[in-house]
Amino acid sequence: MVLVLMGVSGSGKTTVGKLLAADLGWTFVEADDYHPAANVEKMKGGTPLTDDDRRSWLGALRHEIDGACRRGENVVLACSALKHAYQNYLEQHEPDCVSYVYLHGSEELLRSRLEARKGHFMNPKLLESQLETLEPPTDAIRVDVTPPPAVIAKNIRQKLGF
């Protein structure tokens, strides 16, 4: 199974994803590691990515998802997956193997997290464009990100029945 923790920047995908993967004994994959350097530079500068910018990134992620599904590997993937088109593309070859958890919170909470974050390339100015782009999957497990990360991971496990 590939469990995609999705949502906008600041929703805790990486922090919660690492905890959840460790709790479950699964592999953790960080989608940000697959962005080409040009994408990272755009985001650092506060320029939103286009669908064209995301094409190679999504292709690399789908390759990873397809491989994990073929191997029967359980993976927690931290990935924004903001649009339905991206979600559909990621699960296109293995729809029965991929599930989504939508991490959501108030704009104020997300903004405060982004502004407090150190050492990450994502410019806090991009939160607004991400929120405008966001199309949560209708069948995703929805989890509020207000509690501490360990509680969020526990909530996800409970909702999954793990």
Rank of each mutant, 00 (worst) to 15 (best):
S99F: 10
G105M: 03
L110P: 03
D96N: 11
T15W: 07
I65T: 07
G45K: 13
L24H: 13
K83G: 07
C69R: 09
L127F: 06
E41L: 10
F121R: 00
K154H: 08
G161D: 04
M122P: 12
A60C: 15
R55V: 13
L90R: 00
C79M: 06
L110Q: 12
A153P: 10
A60I: 12
S11R: 00
T14Y: 09
D139S: 09
L103C: 08
P148E: 13
R71D: 14
D51S: 06
E108D: 13
G17S: 00
L82C: 02
C97V: 11
H63W: 15
A60H: 14
H120C: 08
A21E: 01
F121P: 08
F28V: 05
K159A: 10
E135F: 12
A116R: 11
K44L: 06
L114Y: 01
R113Q: 09
A60D: 09
V8F: 05
L160I: 01
D53A: 10
P124I: 08
R54S: 06
G59T: 11
S106P: 15
V143E: 01
R71N: 13
A140V: 09
G25N: 10
E64M: 10
E135Q: 08
L126I: 06
V4K: 04
N155D: 10
T50P: 00
A68C: 07
E64Q: 14
L20K: 01
A85Y: 02
V145R: 06
T15A: 15
L127Y: 04
C69L: 06
V145I: 15
H35A: 11
L160N: 12
M6L: 10
R55N: 13
K44H: 06
K18T: 14
L58T: 00
K42A: 03
R113T: 03
E108Y: 04
I65C: 08
H120A: 02
A140M: 04
P95W: 04
G12D: 00
E91C: 03
L3P: 03
L5H: 05
L24S: 14
V75L: 06
G161L: 04
G161Y: 08
D32W: 05
V151M: 10
K125V: 15
K125T: 14
S56D: 15
D51Q: 01
G72S: 01
V101N: 12
L61C: 01
R113V: 01
G17M: 02
K83W: 04
D23S: 13
Y89D: 09
L5E: 07
L19N: 05
A31D: 02
